[in-house]
C-alpha cells in the first residue's frame, strides 16, 4: 500500500493524454475509484478489486507517479473518509498516531512537539505548507522514498508501524518495516493504520535538513534521538541519515557515545563515523564530498540540539 506525502522527484515529462484542445495535459491512465468508510471497508475493497488496487490518502506522491505512468493502478481505494485513522493519542509510554494524520496536524500538535521535537523539526521542512495539508504520515512511510524525511525520524525514535490485513493486525518495528527504496512490509492487501512512538523520560531528539529551496527533497539530512542516564551519560543514542545512502541507523556513530559523558570531541567523532557510514551519490543536489561533509556536520548539530533540549549541552558538559 501507499498513501502519500510530498512531491515526487520526477520532473515534468511529456506523458499522456490531451485536454482535447491541443494542449498537452498530464492525466493518469484510466482507473476505477471507490471510497472506503472504515478500515474493514478498505480491506474488503482491496481484497475485492485485487492486486491492481491501490490505497490513496493525500495523493501527493501517488497522483504525480500516476501522471508519469510510474504507477498504474486499476482501482484507487480512497481512505480519506476513514475517520478512525486520524487519531493522535498520548498514553503513558507511547504516542499513537493514526496513519491518516496529516503533516499539518503533526506540526500543529503541541503534544508531538513536546514529546518528539524531531517531528516538528522535520515537518517544517517536508514539502510546503499547502502540500502538508494533504500528505499523511502513513503515506510517507508507505511510499518509502529513500529521500523521505519521516522515515529517518521514525528510525531514530524506534517507532513501530501497525499494519492491518485479512489475517488481522501486526505490529512491525520500523527497521523491519522498511525493505528498501519504495518497498515496505505492508502488502498490497494490507493497510498501515497507526505509527507508535515510545515515550521515554530524559530523552530528546532533533532533525536538520539542507535543501536547495522550500519544498525540495533533501540534499542531505540527519536525525538523532538520545536518552540520558541519571548520571548524565548517554544511555541510548540513535542517529539516522536521509538521502545519504544509509539504510537504517548509523550504529557505529551512536555506539561511540553510549556510556560516555557528552563532549564536543565525542560529537565530532560521532559525526565522523556517520559520514563514514554514509554512501551518498552525486546528483544535481551536490557532489559526494559535499554530502559526506553534511552527514558529519548535520549529525553533530542534531546531537548538540538534542542535548540542549534535554537540558544538557555538550559545551557546558565539555569541561565537566
Amino acid at each position: 500500500m501507499t498513501a502519500v506525502t510530498d512531491k515526487p522527484r520526477a520532473t515534468r515529462a511529456s506523458a499522456a493524454g490531451s485536454s482535447g484542445k491541443g494542449c498537452p495535459v498530464q492525466v493518469p491512465a484510466p482507473f476505477d475509484y471507490a471510497r472506503a468508510t472504515s478500515v474493514a471497508d478498505a480491506l474488503e475493497l482491496l481484497e475485492r478489486h485485487g492486486p491492481e488496487s491501490h490505497v490513496i490518502a493525500g495523493g501527493h506522491s501517488l497522483l504525480p507517479m500516476m501522471k508519469l505512468r510510474l504507477a498504474r493502478p486499476e482501482w484507487l481505494i480512497d481512505i480519506n473518509d476513514v475517520a478512525e485513522l486520524g487519531h493522535l493519542t498520548e498514553e503513558a509510554d507511547v504516542l499513537r498516531v493514526g496513519a491518516l494524520t496529516r503533516h499539518a496536524a503533526l506540526l500543529d500538535s503541541d503534544v508531538v512537539g513536546r514529546l518528539f521535537p524531531i517531528v516538528h523539526d522535520a515537518e517544517k521542512v517536508i514539502a510546503d505548507p499547502v502540500v502538508r495539508n494533504r500528505g499523511t504520515i502513513g503515506g510517507s512511510l508507505g511510499q518509502a522514498d529513500p529521500a523521505e524525511d519521516l522515515t529517518t525520524v521514525c528510525d531514530v525514535l524506534r517507532a513501530q508501524v501497525v499494519i492491518v490485513g485479512p489475517a488481522g493486525e501486526r505490529v512491525v518495528d520500523i527497521g523491519d518495516f522498511h525493505r528498501g527504496p519504495y518497498e515496505t512490509a505492508c502488502e498490497q492487501n494490507e493497510l498501515i493504520t497507526e505509527v507508535r512512538f515510545p515515550i521515554r523520560a530524559r530523552s530528546s531528539s532533533a532533525y536538520e535538513k539542507v535543501e536547495r529551496r522550500v519544498g525540495d527533497w533533501a540534499v542531505a539530512a540527519a536525525g538523532a534521538a538520545i536518552l540520558l542516564a541519571e548520571d548524565g551519560t548517554f544511555a541510548d543514542v540513535a542517529i539516522g541519515l536521509t538521502a545519504l545512502g544509509l539504510e537504517g541507523l548509523a550504529t557505529e556513530a551512536a555506539a561511540v557515545l553510549v556510556g560516555e559523558r557528552p563532549s564536543e570531541e565525542l560529537l565530532a567523532e560521532a559525526g565522523r563515523l556517520a559520514a563514514v557510514a554514509s554512501s551518498p551519490v552525486e546528483d544535481q543536489r551536490g557532489p559526494v564530498d559535499y554530502k559526506r561533509h553534511l552527514a558529519d556536520e548535520l549529525t553533530r548539530r542534531v546531537l548538540r540540539r538534542s542535548l540542549e533540549r534535554v537540558g544538557a549541552t555538550a559545551g557546558a558538559l565539555q569541561g565537566g
Binding site: K7, G59, H60, L63, K67, V131, N133, R134
Partner: peptide, 22 residues
C-alpha cells in the same frame, strides 16, 4: 502540474489544496 508552483491552489473545506494533485 506537479504540486510545485501553487497557482492551482483552491480552498477545500477552508484549507489550501493544490488542485492539480487532487
Amino acid at each position: 502540474d506537479t504540486s510545485n508552483c501553487g497557482t492551482c491552489v483552491v480552498l477545500v473545506d477552508g484549507e489550501p489544496v493544490k488542485s492539480c494533485t487532487q
